[in-house]
C-alpha cells in the first residue's frame, strides 16, 4: 500500500488518505442496520432506546464544539432546554406537528448559539467555562421566573404532540418515539459525516490543535468557531425538542447543570472528536445508569462520579488504546479488512 501511494504527488496522497478516512466502514453500516432493526424487537425497551438516541444526538452536538473545535463548555444544556421549551410552548398553544416543531426548536437554539458564540470567542478556557455556565444559569433562572409561560418549577403541562408526518402517533411502548428519534439522529449523523470530512471539519480540528498556527495558514478562526458553535446549538436544540415531544413534558430539569455535566461525561466515555463517540457513550452511559439505579436507586450518582474520576485518572488515551485492542480482538475480520485498505 505504501509503495503505491508514495509514488503519487503529496497532494494526491493527502487526498487519498482523507478520502479513505471518509469512507463508510462495514461496522458503521452494521450499526445502523442493527439500530433500525431493534424497532421490531424488545418492544418494552423502546422508551429507553428512544432516550438513548436523544442523549446520543445531544452528545454528538457537544462533540462538534468540544471534540472538533476544542471549546470546553459547561452550559450546553442551555440549547437543549431552549429547544425543549420551544416545542413545549408551541405544542401547548396548539401547534403540535413534530417536524416543524423540531425545525423551530433548531432555529431558536441556533439564534441563541449564534449570539452567545461571540462571547465564547473571547478569553481563556476559564472564561469560556464561566460564560457557558452563566448563559445556562441565566436561562434556567428565566424559565424558573417566567411561570406564566413555562410553568416555572412545576414544568410545562398540557403539551399536545401530533402524529409524526401526520400518520404515526406516539404509542405507549415508545416504538414511534424510538424510530422517530433514531431517524433524526441518522439524518444528523449523515450530514455531520459529510461536514467533518469537508475542509470545514479539517479547519476546526486545526483550530483545536493549534489556533495560532491555524490562523497563520489562513483559516478564519473566529468565523469557523462561530459557525461550529451555532451548528452545535441547533443540533442540541433539536435533541431537546425530541425529548419534550417524546415525553410530552418539559420541566426545569432540561436546563439543570447536571445535564451539561452528564452529556460531557457521555462524550468522554465514548471518545470525543469522532462522530460515533457520542453514540457509543450514550449507549454505555444509559445502560450503566439503568443498571446502577436498579441496585441503588438514590445513589447512582455516586458511582457515575466514581467512574468519571477513575476514567480521568487512568487516562482517556490509554483506555482508548485498550478499547481498540479489545475491539480488534473481538472482530478480527473487520480489523483485517480495515488493515487491508
Amino acid at each position: 500500500m505504501t509503495d503505491i501511494t508514495s509514488s503519487l504527488p503529496p497532494v494526491a496522497r493527502a487526498g487519498r488518505f482523507l478520502a479513505g478516512e471518509a469512507r463508510w466502514s462495514w461496522l458503521e453500516i452494521g450499526f445502523w442496520v442493527v439500530a433500525f432493526g431493534l424497532a421490531f424487537f424488545f418492544r418494552s425497551n423502546h422508551l429507553l432506546f428512544a432516550e438513548i438516541a436523544i442523549l446520543a444526538l445531544f452528545a454528538v452536538s457537544l462533540d462538534i464544539i468540544l471534540g472538533y473545535a476544542g471549546i470546553v463548555s459547561l452550559g450546553h444544556a442551555a440549547f437543549f432546554g431552549l429547544g425543549a421549551y420551544t416545542v413545549g410552548i408551541m405544542a401547548r398553544s396548539g401547534w403540535g406537528d413534530p417536524l416543524t416543531g423540531l425545525a423551530a426548536a433548531g432555529v431558536t437554539a441556533g439564534i441563541l448559539g449564534f449570539f452567545t458564540s461571540f462571547l465564547v470567542l473571547r478569553g481563556s478556557d476559564l472564561t469560556r467555562l464561566m460564560i457557558t455556565l452563566g448563559v445556562a444559569s441565566l436561562l434556567h433562572e428565566t424559565a424558573n421566573k417566567l411561570d406564566w409561560l413555562t410553568g416555572g418549577a412545576d414544568g410545562l403541562q398540557g403539551m399536545m404532540v401530533g402524529p409524526v408526518l401526520g400518520r404515526f402517533s406516539f404509542d405507549l411502548y415508545g416504538t414511534t418515539a424510538y424510530v422517530y428519534a433514531l431517524s433524526v439522529l441518522f439524518v444528523v449523523v449523515l450530514g455531520l459525516r459529510i461536514l467533518v470530512h469537508s475542509p470545514f471539519g479539517h479547519a476546526l480540528r486545526a483550530i483545536r490543535d493549534n489556533p495560532l498556527r491555524a490562523r497563520a495558514i489562513g483559516i478564519p478562526v473566529n468565523r469557523r468557531l462561530i459557525a461550529a458553535y451555532t451548528l452545535a446549538a441547533v443540533i442540541a436544540g433539536i435533541a431537546g425538542a425530541l425529548l419534550a415531544q417524546t415525553s410530552g413534558f418539559a420541566s426545569l430539569d432540561v436546563l439543570e447543570f447536571h445535564r451539561s455535566a452528564d452529556v460531557m461525561l457521555v462524550l468522554v466515555i465514548g471518545g470525543s472528536g469522532r462522530l460515533y463517540g457520542g453514540i457509543l457513550g450514550a449507549i454505555v452511559f444509559r445502560f450503566a445508569q439503568d443498571a446502577i439505579s436498579t441496585i441503588t436507586p438514590q445513589y447512582w450518582q455516586f458511582w457515575i462520579g466514581m467512574g468519571l474520576v477513575i476514567l480521568v485518572l487512568a487516562g482517556r488515551d490509554r483506555l482508548e488504546t485498550v478499547g481498540r485492542k479489545i475491539v480488534g480482538r473481538a472482530l478480527p475480520w473487520i480489523a483485517n479488512k480495515e488493515a487491508a485498505r
Partner: peptide, 19 residues
C-alpha cells in the same frame, strides 16, 4: 488539560453529593 480537570472535579462533586 482543562477538560480532564473539569471531568475529574465534576466526578468528585457527584460522589460528594451522593455520599
Amino acid at each position: 488539560s482543562h477538560l480532564d480537570q473539569v471531568m475529574f472535579s465534576i466526578g468528585l462533586v457527584f460522589m460528594a453529593m451522593a455520599g
